[in-house]
Design a protein around this nucleic acid. Sequence first.
DNA 1: ATCTATCGATACAGATCGGTATCGTTTAAT
DNA 2: ATTAAACGATACCGATCTGTATCGATAGAT
Lengths: 204, 204
Amino acid sequence: MRRSEIRNHLLETALRLFNEHGYQATGIDLIIAEAGVAKTTLYRHFETKEDLILAALERRDEEDRSAMRAFVDDHATDPLERIFATFDFLEAYVDDWRFSGCIFVSAAGEHKDTVDPVFRAAVMHKRLTLAYFEELVHAARFVEPKRIAAEIHLLHEGAVVVAQMSRTAEPVRQARQMARKLFATAEQSPLSRSAPHAAPGAKA
Amino acid sequence: MRRSEIRNHLLETALRLFNEHGYQATGIDLIIAEAGVAKTTLYRHFETKEDLILAALERRDEEDRSAMRAFVDDHATDPLERIFATFDFLEAYVDDWRFSGCIFVSAAGEHKDTVDPVFRAAVMHKRLTLAYFEELVHAARFVEPKRIAAEIHLLHEGAVVVAQMSRTAEPVRQARQMARKLFATAEQSPLSRSAPHAAPGAKA
DNA sequence: ATCTATCGATACAGATCGGTATCGTTTAAT
DNA sequence: ATTAAACGATACCGATCTGTATCGATAGAT
């Protein structure tokens, strides 16, 4: 294995095991065994296990959010439909056979102290995801974009947790239906959302 | 301390510590130290740590659901308002300074194997909670009661997870608003709910 | 081709884990 | 008052944990 690939390989292996068994339950020895790497090698790339967890979460954060962006860009152009497309992305995410809950929620559940770096990393992921929702909602010209974005976020989180327990993607489909019902009646800006010319204060 | 109280005391102590630090992170030694009890005593009441976890979850399950029932009974008589009262209960639950996320979701996050008894116990709690929602929805004469109950459940779970990250009760209030908007337009049975006159029993 | 940094393998340290064994003391029921 | 069970305290077991030390082999860059 090439030198520069080891770090990536370690992160991917750790991420997979964290997702399968959790953080505390995943020992360093298991990670290096699955990665086929010596313990010294792991500790040359990551100072502590916590550093490995943080690096893994950071990587997954970027992966997830850029994957959602790409999915939305690929599947919808209409600003309103782009909002609903996030639920389609979520459905595919939950339908993966490796799915066993949101790893950030699990990370927050295992590191409950609000000053714990792992907890803070989980919170940061949710904040960045919420910020993307705000972009989408803003582009759809909703009034109170922050409120609508928070509602989308809440639906996403609820769907994922229920899906984690029921091991079905049905909660995600239900969340999308709820979103459609909620945002069909949500008042939009006087300048209708399909207006090709930019509305004042448009961010993206 | 009286003999019969030891088991209860152990369960309460364990529950508190599990809620503070999680399950794996809470060692037996910490539990007995906080409970002021010898290790032999703990193992005379519970065969293994897993048994202690399961007993704690079972206890908490019954406590939570009976507390929600009592709250709803106390705060609303109108069948529709009783549904919304569950969100008021949830708000008080989340507003507690000891709140750090749903212990059943955390339990499922730390025991991801679907055949793990702890995971199954967490799932059972959610199923029983959902069943109660179905009772409430049925009493409110909604068509498709199971669908409506699942939506309430999804809103609850989403609110709790977002509240876990933000450490605010605001997500719960938002979830209640979403429920009001969703179920205001939800079609009810031809026999409209019994009280056509102004809603009594709404919370103060 | 040589040098240097990183690799794999292994052994080990020190702490902590869940759980057991022992024993003297206390408590509840007869 | 006596008996039997549960108690507290403590020492201990084997396993596992994160992290370090050592050392020969290997690979990248010059």
